[in-house]
Design a protein around this nucleic acid. Structure first.
Lengths: 175, 175
DNA sequence: ACACAGGTAAAACGATCACTTTACCCTGTC
DNA sequence: GACAGGGTAAAGTGATCGTTTTACCTGTGT
């Protein structure tokens, strides 16, 4: 594992657990075990590192969601939360912590959410065809975001509820 | 309007738009038009002010949601977002920005989310009786959280989708 | 007339912020 | 065996953090 990857991994943990703004670069350099000079040589700035963290997160998360039914989507989210814990969507958190004022972050988040919704649209179509249309896609999207947010304080139960609701909605449009 | 109220109002705007951690106390004192000495005499500390902001937010938000049907719940959220904009749940944002490490904030958030869920349970029962049980309450809760989160990047469309989904779920359990 | 409550501006507190600079120490290659 | 490349530790950059202190002004009640 090269230095950049180690930095991104350490930063993802700290940003996720303590917040982006509240995590100082000195804390990060200590956690990663590099000098601050090396850190800045490899990632340039805190904003750039934040964007790198989000890009890596997207790769990992979307890989997790590489499934072919809506039910499997929520099953995957259950697995994710079991392994990674539940502190809310890291993309929305990064965006709101910075008020959308950090271009590197704002762009990465916008791009991810577009890709995320289009992935859900794909899964929905594979599952029930075009029967549900955009409306069903948005309903599943909302359930997924809601499961992510509510599981912070309701635990896995929130995801179970979302999964049940999704199943009922799917059932109604299935031919 | 007394000083404390003015401070809370100004702080709510700044915290909501730019984040809790990213908003400095000097920026707040300037925006509110008071000296920092007066601010600290009235609110004690930034953490205490954050908790006050959340308490006031809860009062206002729960008043908004004082309705008697699930559909009206989502209609109220649409109104709220139209008037206040959509930057995600301020309670979850406060919690995640501080990693849950600030007791005043953590306690206020936990209390709010408990009250919030119990309010939803009430509304659901008024709407369809006990037919849906806890499962329906959690489904509506997830839809509401999802509408709040997704409307940050999808706009009011996310709330419309949640409202439709809720109507379908309600329809299935109504006697 | 005078004390006092309650506000102000402005400086200072030490800590920490993101980031840079300086000086040094390995280690593999020609 | 000299020489880079690429890492280190540690100090320093000016700015800003949350908070406190100092000294002063002003309106009100007695």
């Amino acid at each position: 594992m090269d230095i950049k990857t180690k930095l991104i991994t350490a930063a993802e943990q700290l940003f996720d657990r303590h917040g982006f703004t509240a995590t100082g670069m000195d804390r990060l350099t200590k956690a990663a075990g590099f000098s601050s000079r090396t850190v800045y040589k490899h990632v340039g700035s805190k904003a750039a590192l934040s964007a790198l963290v989000l890009s890596e997160r997207e790769r990992r998360f979307m890989h997790y969601l590489d499934v072919h039914s809506v039910d499997a989507l929520f099953a995957a989210l259950e697995d994710w939360v079991r392994e990674e814990g539940s502190r809310g969507c890291l993309f929305l958190r990064a965006y709101s912590e910075t008020g959308g004022d950090t271009p590197e972050i704002a762009e990465t988040v916008t791009a991810h959410k577009a890709a995320f919704r289009s992935h859900i649209a794909n899964v929905v179509e594979q599952d029930v065809g075009k029967a549900g249309g955009d409306a069903l896609t948005d309903q599943i999207l909302v359930l997924f975001e809601g499961a992510t947010a509510a599981s912070v304080y309701r635990g896995p139960e929130a995801i179970v509820a979302a999964r049940q609701a999704a199943a009922l909605l799917i059932e109604q449009v299935r031919p």
